[in-house]
Each structure stands twice: as C-alpha cells, then as structure tokens.
Write a protein that binds this DNA or RNA. Structure first.
Length: 229
DNA sequence: CGTGTTTGACCTGCGC
DNA sequence: GCGCAGGTCAAACACG
C-alpha cells in the first residue's frame, strides 16, 4: 500500500507539472483572446454564475461546433466574427422551455484543436438524463452541475475532462426508443462501438488520466487536490 | 409530421 | 447620423 501511495505521489508530481504546462497554454489562449476582444469585460469582471467559458479539445477536422455537456441545445444562429475566421455558433438550452441559458461555441484562435464554449446565464432545471448527472457528479467536489465561471485555469481544465465524459449521452442518442431484434442489435452494436471509441480516446487523453489519478489519489490518501498557482 | 439545422435578413449597441 | 460587428429571428430545408 505504501509503495502504491508513493507511486501515486510521484505520479501526482508529474500531474502537477503537466497541469502547469496546460495552465501556461491556456493562459496564452486567454491572453490572446482578451487582447483581441477589445472592450469586452475581462473574465474576472464578468458576473459570477452568469458567464463561464470552457475549452473542449476536439479533432481539427471536426466542424460541428458541438460541445456535449449533458444539456440539450438548440442552435439558433451562426456567424463569422471579425477576430476569428472560424464561425461562431449560437445555442439555446432546449431542455426546459423557459431556460434562459445560451451558449456560444467557437474554435479557439490560439489553438484550433480547442472549442471555446461560452455559457450565458444559469439553468433553471436539472440535467434529466443519467449522462448529465454523471457530468455533474464528475465535477461534484469543486464545481456545481454547470460549468463554473472561468475564475481559474483549473476550472477550465476540469470542465474539459468532464465534457469528455459525457460524449455518449448526447442529444443525438437520447430520443430513439428501443426497438426490437436486428434493429436493436444494430443500435446496440453502434452504441458499443461508440463507447469503445470514447473509452479509447479517454485512455489516450492525458487530461483524463491525470484527473483520474488525482481522484484515486485523493480517495486513497488525504492528499489535497493538485492546485495551480 | 415533428424537430432540429442552416442561413440570409434584420436588430441593436457602440465608436467615430 | 453612419457604418460596423455581434447577436437574434425566422423561413426554408433536412432528416428520421
């Protein structure tokens, strides 16, 4: 057990170094953005619990601008903005008829592998699917069920991980009722393939393994969670 | 047929 | 007042 703890501790040191590297990368991205947004309130100035921003890693050739966060969104517009050649997509929360939450999704100018999702407002309802709940619980200890305001790079980092965990519970999969026989088998197979794909991508995702290791470590020991300065 | 997406038009706020 | 850019609307369209 002690050996395992020692291994974990040394692994956590690596994790912290990795996070610091990520923090630096994210800092570059946000600095670039604030410079180019001119006049836009800085994130620290933005009202807490009203606006938050998360970064989601995607494939470069993925043009869907879809950020799967456990909620159901309806796209209502798309624009190409002046400071970023990638189109910005506008979404409204469609899980509740009167939910005021909106989000904007645009590929990061600094690092085009990342989508930047900006959330506006607060949900007046819960996530009603199991995946959504797992999304919320994945963030449970330090975050609410909704992406927290971007007050630190840690939150952005954690949001990124949480989002990757929700991939199989997208709106695209939620509504088809189960049918029978070959159709059911086909759907099941398809779902299985998808899950395997996600699991494989998670396994290869250093962010995920990092967070997993930290969670395991903190549950075994009383080590504080890694923090970013 | 219901639901979600696309996309051009329109609205609004801001700087000059 | 004008022009620009971001945000929103809504008709047309696609899809299951």
């Amino acid at each position: 057990m002690n050996d395992k703890c020692n291994n974990l501790q040394s692994h956590i040191q690596e994790i912290i170094r990795t996070e610091q590297q990520m923090k630096y990368n994210n800092y570059l991205a946000s600095s670039y953005e604030s410079i180019h947004k001119g006049g836009r309130p800085t994130l620290a100035e933005a009202p807490i619990s009203q606006t938050s921003k998360i970064y989601v890693k995607t494939h470069l050739d993925d043009k869907t601008l879809v950020v799967r966060d456990g909620y159901q969104w309806r796209k209502y517009g798309q624009k190409v903005t002046k400071d970023n050649p990638s189109p910005r997509a506008y979404f409204k929360c469609s899980m509740a008829p009167r939910c005021p939450v909106k989000k904007k999704v645009q590929r990061s100018l600094e690092d085009r592998r990342y989508l930047v999702a900006t959330y506006d407002g607060e949900h007046n309802h819960d996530v009603d699917c199991s995946i959504g709940r797992s999304f919320a619980s994945a963030k449970s200890s330090s975050m609410a069920g909704f992406p927290s305001p971007e007050t630190s790079d840690t939150s952005r980092f954690q949001s990124n991980i949480a989002l990757n965990l929700t991939l199989s519970g997208s709106s695209q999969e939620k509504k088809r009722p189960s049918s029978h026989n070959s159709r059911e088998d086909y759907d099941h197979h398809k779902k299985k393939m998808k899950i395997e794909e996600y699991v494989s991508s998670l396994a290869n995702d250093p962010n995920f393994t990092t967070a997993l290791a930290a969670a395991v470590a903190s549950s075994i020991t009383d080590l504080p969670k890694p923090t970013i300065l």
